[in-house]
Write a protein that binds this DNA or RNA. Sequence first.
DNA 1: TTAAGATAGTGTAGTTTTTACACTATGTCA
DNA 2: TGACATAGTGTAAAAACTACACTATCTTAA
Lengths: 222, 222
Amino acid sequence: MRYCYDHPRPAVATDVVLFSIREGMLMLLLVKRAHEPFAGAWALPGGFVGIDEDLETSALRELEEETGVTGVYLEQLHTSGEPGRDPRGRVISVAYYALTPSDGLHIRAASDAKAVAWSALEDLPPMAFDHEKIVNMAHQRLVAKLDYSTIAFQFMPQMFTLSELQTVYQIILREELDKRNFRKGVLAMSCLERTTEKRRNGKHRPAQLYRLKSPGRVEFIK
Amino acid sequence: MRYCYDHPRPAVATDVVLFSIREGMLMLLLVKRAHEPFAGAWALPGGFVGIDEDLETSALRELEEETGVTGVYLEQLHTSGEPGRDPRGRVISVAYYALTPSDGLHIRAASDAKAVAWSALEDLPPMAFDHEKIVNMAHQRLVAKLDYSTIAFQFMPQMFTLSELQTVYQIILREELDKRNFRKGVLAMSCLERTTEKRRNGKHRPAQLYRLKSPGRVEFIK
DNA sequence: TTAAGATAGTGTAGTTTTTACACTATGTCA
DNA sequence: TGACATAGTGTAAAAACTACACTATCTTAA
């Protein structure tokens, strides 16, 4: 079956930059391409949009199909449409970025045996298409949003300590923060609530666990 | 001639929300649709992307073709792809927003005699497709960017007085600003330079004219 | 020529926000 | 039971922001 139109049409794809904090680093999830073009190169998970499929749905579906990852926080990033960005022809890609907590995630390679791996943002392999550009945009956006939203909380599991949260901020911002000021700041946002539980996390005093009042919701601050 | 593919493809369009300050109001440029769907309704200027055409180029081209407007400041806003947003079939629209100075702009209706008009944001007519949603997003973005960038300067002509600039901010923010604090603020950004000229603007003392150090460049502040 | 009218242009003091900084508390572990 | 390691807490100085009112300079009309 072929699909015919009066005017030529570009193909439309979605790609996802999935961030997570792992091993004390800001990492993102890449898949190794099995086919040309760029066979063997690393790329963002993504693929073509179904004809009756919402863009966001497409991004989540491709992410799950290629990496097994579900339940992430997703935001639209940017649409790249430069002619020539894909050697197969005109492909317009709607890029999303996503955040997921560090733990409790099981990635798996897709059925067609493409490799899936986390890669430190600091140390990315050469990437297919213009995906490096997209990654840079996503990183910029993430850092910018840290400043005026609660987006970083999307990296946290259901319950977490304030020290853990501070560590996440420090990793993304690449700078040390003052403990007292940090705590004052996040508690003032009043989107966290103390749980009754504590976490024992080494040979020292256990820390109070907190949780988000509205998990999945990113709020603007200031 | 027909164009055929192995998989069905959505059509891809660009739309532009062009803002300007006119008659003391924040206005945007609309075109009246000549054809179905939504014939006779107001819509954002826009249209389908050429197969070898960059998205930004497409947005600027459609803007010029439909309204005669050129030389605007343009930024990508959001891509809408909800199936069903266009009754003709699957259309994915990459929306841009644009800013242009208040004066020295000559709009004209396109050759096919569609009407073109400025409409106050406060008082928009019913709009075709999901264009109202797009306009709201653009407005939100504009207000947000006012806070952390010099985007409002893109509403100004080459030379302008500080009072004129303050008026623009006041119109967009819908609140009065303190004259001395405003001046302190914008001069501290140090992206303005005094010209040697003054503007006589009524029966009172003429005001110093300023110009942007890098016109067309929007900088982040704070 | 001169006075009235109108906007341009300027500084400071009070308040709020941000920053820098060090010790006590409470658990674990040997 | 004492050493260890992180949790948890307050305050003072600096910086940023806010509120606020008068003089300067040009136009216009008497």
